[in-house]
Computed example of a mutant assay.
Amino acid sequence: MLKKIVVSGANGKMGREVVRMIAGKDDFELVGAVDVTGVGEDINQLLSLDAPVVRISDDLAETLDQTQADAVIDFTNPTVVMDNIKVTSQKGIDIVVGATGITEVDLEKIEKMSQENGNKVIIAPNFAIGAILMMQFAQQAAKLMDNVEIIELHHDKKIDAPSGTAIKTAELISKNLSKKKGKVEEIEKITGARGGEHDDINIHSVRLPGFVAHQEVIFGGLGQTLTIRHDSINRKSFMPGVELAVRKLDEIEGVVYGLDNLIEI
């Protein structure tokens, strides 16, 4: 069955990869592209794709009305993603969200909207299968090693810190920690030098050109350390996970947070 898809954030780096992925699937069809840049341009022509004309619009609601889409894939940013989720929910259209910055309070609002309107929502801090494995392995390691910190490294255009992946990792690890770390009286010569803290786990964010998306979880024990690291070398690494999420929309109910809830490890 052909699935008609609108990509929100279509002219961004991730959005463009999503458009390319859709073009390569016989049962996916790009019917709309939404972005604040390139308005009026044919996204397929911009990407040199042999596909029907799909002109970029800056109005998601209008695009959904005109296209009769089955689903939206959103790779925008934290400043607009909640508005986009609200629009899709009000129209009863399913959405896969890759934009970061979704908080616990936001999740509660999204769940309420989904219940009221009957649409389905999949939100994933990270769509790379390897990143999901990294988080799962770290969660298991926490059963035996209590001391841990997270370092996440992203490109310099990423506006939120820490990453959604780092926060999700900390939440998963925290479930298996047998004890909270002891408080050591520290002298922080520069505020923030020890990173931020989530669920009693220190998280350090690096933003530099040259990176795409990387994370390492470092466990420390008596006379040993264990490092679990994942690297996304380019944005194609996220596309199998995005495709999986779109296909799983037909099987789920309500809101699913985290790609790990859609795959069996």
Rank of each mutant, 00 (worst) to 15 (best):
D94G: 13
G32M: 07
Q90N: 14
I56G: 07
I22F: 00
I43L: 02
H154F: 01
L30R: 11
T191L: 01
F238Q: 05
F219T: 07
E188W: 03
L177V: 01
G164S: 02
T37D: 10
M113Q: 06
G192A: 00
K86N: 09
V36L: 14
R20Q: 15
A23V: 09
L30P: 02
S8P: 00
L133Q: 04
M14P: 00
E197G: 10
K183C: 01
G15Q: 08
K91H: 14
F75Q: 05
F219W: 06
H155E: 09
K3V: 14
V217F: 02
E243K: 13
I85A: 03
K158H: 13
D50F: 02
T100R: 11
F137A: 12
R229P: 03
K25W: 01
T169S: 14
S114Y: 07
T37V: 14
D70P: 08
P209L: 05
M1L: 09
I110M: 07
R229A: 15
H198K: 15
A193Q: 08
F238Y: 10
E243Q: 14
D231G: 05
L244I: 12
N176P: 07
K236P: 06
R247K: 12
A170V: 07
D160V: 10
V31R: 04
I129D: 12
K183P: 00
V246H: 09
K168A: 12
G24I: 13
I228G: 06
P125I: 05
F75E: 06
V34R: 02
S89N: 07
